[in-house]
Write a protein that binds this DNA or RNA. Structure first.
Length: 266
RNA sequence: GACUCAAAUCUUACCAG
């Protein structure tokens, strides 16, 4: 009963709720899925109402329900309210977990409150929050977004010093950061580091680097990377094609761009 | 008994701001 398909039809979920009145009772999981669906569509107010509904039905929101709703507020950049909910859940005796903390961390980063995010993170480290790579990734992404590559790099060093293992997302995030500030050589050497660590660059890694290369006018290298992808596990995807097409247009090679589009259509 | 199963982090464009 609780396994609704998400991602597909957020509005149809409302219908599902009504249908479940015909004999099938929604449970906490059902509501959590729906709330998450509404939140990711920016329907935060509806999500709030839905949480009230479930309470009225005698269903108690759990950590997943709260985290989903907290994430919704973060998407809307309403971080204050997100923390308000966080306080509320703690008062209800519900223990936040790493998902909850990471959601809040990301919320702080996305509104540019990086120092607060770091403070929050450090405070959590002192408590029951095991070091986890996702939290580091969130902070790294935050610093990369504003071009503070020195701070971002320092966090990567810290991950390694703690004996944790950076993952593909860690590297992808840093590569994007270096590309965005035009430090393409640093980005390239991170790709090498990544492979040296035994990590497989994925489609996002390549796409990210290609954007950087095109930005500094090195379309040729970007095209080579696309060739390289084919030889590996990862395949160029729709985003790859969009990047390359736009790169060709920027280089004035409209005919090549058109050919690429046509070949993609086959 | 184990596994994926409701919530967190990375790339282009679009949308929103």
């Amino acid at each position: 009963t609780g396994l609704c398909r998400k991602k597909q039809l957020a509005e149809a979920k409302l219908v599902l709720v009504e249908m479940s009145e015909m004999g099938i009772n929604p449970n906490v999981m059902t509501y959590s899925v729906l709330i998450h669906g509404l939140c990711s569509q920016g329907q935060i107010e509806d999500a709030k109402l839905m949480m009230q509904d479930m309470v009225h039905l005698g269903l108690a929101p759990n950590v997943v329900t709260y985290t989903a709703l907290i994430g919704g507020f973060c998407i809307e950049r309403r971080v204050e309210e997100a923390f308000g909910l966080f306080d509320e859940m703690v008062q209800q005796g519900i223990d936040p977990n790493k998902y909850t903390y990471c959601t809040l961390l990301d919320g702080l980063c996305k509104v540019g409150k990086l120092e607060e995010a770091v403070q929050f993170f450090r405070r959590l480290q002192g408590q029951a929050f095991d070091d986890n790579v996702v939290a580091y990734n969130i902070l790294i992404s935050g610093f990369c977004k504003v071009g503070f590559m020195n701070k971002a790099t320092r966090l990567l060093v810290e991950i390694i010093q703690k004996g944790l293992e950076p993952d593909e997302i860690t590297y992808n995030t840093l590569i994007d950061g270096f590309c965005k500030v035009g430090r393409i050589e640093d980005a390239k050497s991170l790709l090498i580091d990544m492979e040296r660590q035994g990590l497989r660059p994925n489609d996002i890694t390549y796409n990210t680097l290609m954007v950087g290369l095109i930005k500094v006018g090195d379309l040729e290298h970007a095209l080579h990377l696309a060739q390289e992808m084919v030889g590996k596990q990862t395949q160029p995807d729709a985003i790859t094609h969009s990047i390359l097409t736009s790169g060709m247009c920027q280089a004035g090679r409209f005919q090549d761009a058109e050919n690429l589009l046509l070949s993609y259509g086959r």
